[in-house]
């Protein structure tokens, strides 16, 4: 990204949402366990390509990259993830209702 033309720097900021803080914590803790490294996270982020940078938020990209690494390390299967995501979505229409199983 260094050196490519770009517009003004938007200086808006936001407080982090709980789900974003949880994603951040998952990355740090998974790194500590040795399941994957921050370089594994970065590699997955880069492989998601330019479109993801434009269409997904920072921590959306992070959870996608964390998941990619955990699938690669065999921590859980795609089937387990898919089934769990369906179950979570059935709990309720908001994060507040779905966040605890």
């Amino acid at each position: 990204m260094g050196g490519t033309p770009a517009g003004p720097v938007c200086q808006d900021d936001h407080d982090f949402a709980l789900w974003e803080k949880r994603v951040d914590a998952l990355m740090v803790l998974c790194g500590n366990t040795g399941l994957f490294t921050v370089d594994g996270l970065r590699r997955a982020l880069e492989d998601m390509g330019e479109e993801a940078f434009e269409t997904m938020s920072y921590y959306e990209r992070w959870i996608a990259a964390i998941n990619q690494n955990l699938l690669e390390s065999g921590t859980y299967s795609i089937e387990e993830l898919g089934a769990r995501m369906e179950e979570v979505a059935r709990r309720g229409p908001t994060y507040g209702e779905a966040q605890d199983g």
Partner: peptide, 26 residues
Amino acid sequence: GHPYRKDDDHPLTYWQTMEIAVRELL
């Protein structure tokens, strides 16, 4: 005690669903 953005009442997104699922599986 730190405030965080009010997101609990917004519709659950795909990526939030993934966060919950990944956290629970871990």
